[in-house]
Amino acid sequence: MPFFIIDHVSHTYFTKDSTTTAVEDIHLEMEEGEFISFLGPSGCGKTTLLSIMAGLIEPTEGKIILNGKQIKGATPAVGYMLQQDYLFPWKTIEENILIGLKLLNQLGEEQKKRTIQLLHDMGLKHVEKLYPNQLSGGMRQRAALVRTLSTNPKMLLLDEPFSALDFQTKLKLEDLVFSKIKEYQKTACLVTHDIGEAIAMSDRIVLLSRRPGKITKIFSVPEELRSLTPFKTRQHPKFHSLFELIWKELEQHETKSNH
């Protein structure tokens, strides 16, 4: 049985004068340790989909199954990292990364030590007592990743975590996140609108259409690219051919939906 299943999920929002279907009949099965990217234009319902996968929204149809169990409500087994860091400005970095354990009532000495160690592993040293506004964007995003990892989730959801960063920081952080996810053997799901990033990071790429979000195509990233770090993947000749393939596919849908 697959590790994580998005089982025919649809979700519709209701307002007084309209109904909006954000995602429609999404079905996907993921193996443990797999890295999947959702690639789509804005308005493809990606945030809705991630919120459903995290158990924050109950889908109008379908269900989410993790490790054979249906997800109902937020669970520490799924970690969700937002587009911006959303570190609490009134808390120190240490308080920020320990908030998850504190909320779950698991803040023991050992857990605390492990999380601080995680912070050091991310290359953030001597920042525990600092406040978020004293850190650069890349450092803040790394701290936010530590916060997400602090409760040791099996599944990681990443909602365009690199989109607010400058290009150089983004490339460096891609490599770091990629290697850490492999090191800690997490299953991960990245949402992005950057084709290059999707190819560089993932094993499979799922294309979503605009409003309502539907799966239009799934690409498998070639074996030889999967094991390379994102930075090296970007320079591989196969990277460019896959990039063009996906680009064409996206173009096709663009023109289709415009007519």
Binding site: L56, A74, L82, Y86, F88, I99, L103, L104
Partner: peptide
């Protein structure tokens, strides 16, 4: 208050 701060807490089951 920015809803995303609440979302962060919700993911930890707050």
């Amino acid at each position: 208050v920015d809803q995303n701060y609440l979302k962060v807490l919700q993911t930890f089951g707050a």
